[in-house]
Amino acid sequence: MNNAIFAFIAYALLWAMLIAYIVILAKRQSEMRGQLDEIEHALTTQDTKQE
């Protein structure tokens, strides 16, 4: 029986989805870290100004 193509499609889909998801998560995480750094930077400058 030559229906292995279905299995191939399923596995390809699995990897495409999971990799896409991890990429999205990683992107979001780096973006959020950037924002956090920015805010912390703003806070420290404010701190020094006040001092």
């Binding site: 029986m1 030559n2 229906n3 292995a4 193509i5 279905f6 299995a7 191939f8 399923a10 596995y11 699995l14």
Partner: peptide
Amino acid sequence: LIYAPEEALQGGAQRIFYLH
């Protein structure tokens, strides 16, 4: 995909089972 034997009735499509 490689180690498990091919299922007699369902053929290659049965390998989806390990993912599904």
